[in-house]
């Protein structure tokens, strides 16, 4: 009994690990400077056919990035303020299109009013890449229970591209690749052993991004 308990605890502690790789590219050696009162806005890419960067992930990275020296604007509020120029159909995919948008006085003024210095474009998704096993549950007059074992692998791949709106250039790129396996054990009660792949990707990306900005006091 003790052996089974120890085995179970060890399995619990070691099973739900995530492997996360973070790659960073910066156009210069220095950290990205942000002035007092300037803001950063995080925007999700939603133009791909089979996935979209979900708003909850964008919000999660924003909450990691937000700090006393770094102010992050809410994505939806900013999209509404610039409507319809950040919709999936109209959002600038590259800097030449952004330069073209900034030539429109109303758009430029709206961005300046919000004191947005950097756009951070987030692109990616979390997908289930493999599944195995099965679990079945049954209920009868005498009780109910689940039996079996199932596991699935999830992969989160996200890329953040930072645009400097003052000189309309790309200043940094951060890519996070996170992978992990979750388990569901049916031993009368279903016991989930979930690996927080997406949450780990969010934390890693948020921390890495907050490391590359610094407040220019």
């Amino acid at each position: 009994m003790r052996f089974f308990f120890v085995t179970f605890v060890l399995f619990w502690l070691t099973a739900c690990a995530t492997i996360t790789t973070v790659d960073e590219y910066r156009s210069g050696d220095q950290k990205i400077s942000i002035g007092n009162g300037d803001n950063v806005v995080l925007l999700g890419r939603r133009d791909s056919g089979d996935y979209e960067t979900d708003a909850e992930f964008v919000k999660c990275v924003g909450s990691k990035l937000q700090g006393p020296s770094l102010s992050v604007l809410q994505e939806q509020d900013f999209m509404n303020a610039l409507y319809p120029w950040l919709e999936p159909r109209t959002a600038p995919k590259a800097l030449p299109r952004m330069r073209r948008l900034m030539q429109e006085p109303l758009i430029e003024q709206s961005i300046r009013d919000k004191r947005v210095r950097y756009f951070v474009w987030l692109d990616g998704a979390t997908k289930t890449i493999d599944k195995a096993g099965s679990i079945s549950c049954a209920a009868g007059p005498g009780g109910a229970g689940c039996f079996g074992f199932a596991k699935w692998d999830k992969s989160s791949i996200y890329e953040a591209i930072v645009w400097d709106i003052d000189d309309l250039s790309e200043v940094a790129r951060v890519r996070v690749d996170s992978e992990g396996t979750s388990y569901l054990i049916g031993a009368i009660a279903p016991i989930p052993l979930m690996t927080p792949v997406k949450n780990d990707a969010c934390t890693s990306l948020g921390n890495q991004l907050s490391n590359i900005f610094h407040s220019a006091e």
Binding site: Y83, P84, E87, P88, R89, T90
Partner: peptide, 13 residues
């Protein structure tokens, strides 16, 4: 809602 927001984007363009 996204489809209705696309009305503004499409007509503007």
């Amino acid at each position: 809602e996204m489809a209705l927001r696309d009305v503004g984007a499409k007509l503007s363009l």
